[in-house]
């Protein structure tokens, strides 16, 4: 069963075509990574899946229920005037959940991302990694069936990035939402996804789809296994092809 699908979508902006024709179907509970060079339309594809943008041509179908789709952007995108708990409770409060109940569930979501006790902190008092976790908690608080991550770790250092990648996989394991995440880091894509979709330079089309073998969440040392290395090499080669590099 698919939770969101793009069929032959094309997106035109005033300066030219940004994406497509592009196809992508996301299965229930699937972990999909979108990789591609800058400006290939990865983020556009994600906004189509979220329903934040409509395709110029083609068809985009998605979950219609409130809070069934959540997005995490490259920046934490927290409201600076609100506490961490208020930021996380926001999607619930906007949907009409009573304030006390929303705050209680927000505290639970913060605890799930390892930020119990940080409820009253303001975004400015948090480190980049912590702010990203608050953003993740806000995305999880509605118990979404589809979680869209737009280069969520791009602004973080390598150690924080890896820790968050493992945390996202652990969170995925708990409730199994479908996750689509955009990155231009090939190793991160292969590590986190069971399917890696490689896009060409803009306007992006699919150059290659790589099925990554191995258990999710990843066992320790997964990055050194031959399977991991092979997938990274295949995806890197496809990425180079998609950028127009000579074979």
């Amino acid at each position: 069963m698919s939770v969101a699908a793009l069929r032959q979508v094309e997106v035109d902006y005033p300066r030219g075509r940004a994406l497509g024709p592009f196809d992508l179907a996301i299965g229930d509970g699937e972990l999909v990574a979108l990789v591609g060079p800058s400006g290939c339309g990865k983020s556009t594809a994600l906004r189509l899946l979220a329903g934040l943008e409509a395709p110029t041509r083609g068809e985009a179908s998605r979950l219609q229920g409130r809070g069934e789709t959540s997005v995490v952007f490259q920046a934490a995108t927290l409201a600076p005037w609100m506490s961490a708990a208020a930021n996380v409770a926001l999607p619930l409060e906007l949907a009409g959940v009573a304030r006390a109940e929303a705050r209680r569930r927000a505290a639970g979501a913060l605890a799930r991302v390892g930020l119990a006790g940080a409820e009253q902190a303001r975004p400015a008092q948090l480190s980049g990694g912590m702010a990203m976790r608050v953003s993740l908690a806000r995305a999880l608080v509605t118990a979404p069936r589809l979680l869209l991550l737009d280069e969520p770790f791009a602004a973080l250092d390598e150690i924080t990035r890896r820790a968050l990648a493992d945390d996202v996989l652990a969170l995925w394991h708990e409730t199994k939402p479908a996750i689509v995440f955009v990155t231009h880091n090939v190793e991160e894509a292969v590590y986190m996804a069971s399917r890696v979709v490689v896009m060409s330079k803009g306007p992006g089309v699919t150059v290659h789809e790589e099925a990554v073998a191995g258990a999710l969440p990843r066992p320790a040392g997964f990055r050194t296994t031959p399977g991991f290395r092979k997938s990274v090499e295949t995806v890197s080669a496809a990425l180079a092809r998609g950028m127009g590099a000579p074979a």
Partner: peptide
């Protein structure tokens, strides 16, 4: 992006 989230959450 925060505006997009508000739209996504049906505000």
């Amino acid at each position: 992006d925060l505006s997009r989230l508000f739209r996504l959450y049906g505000a």
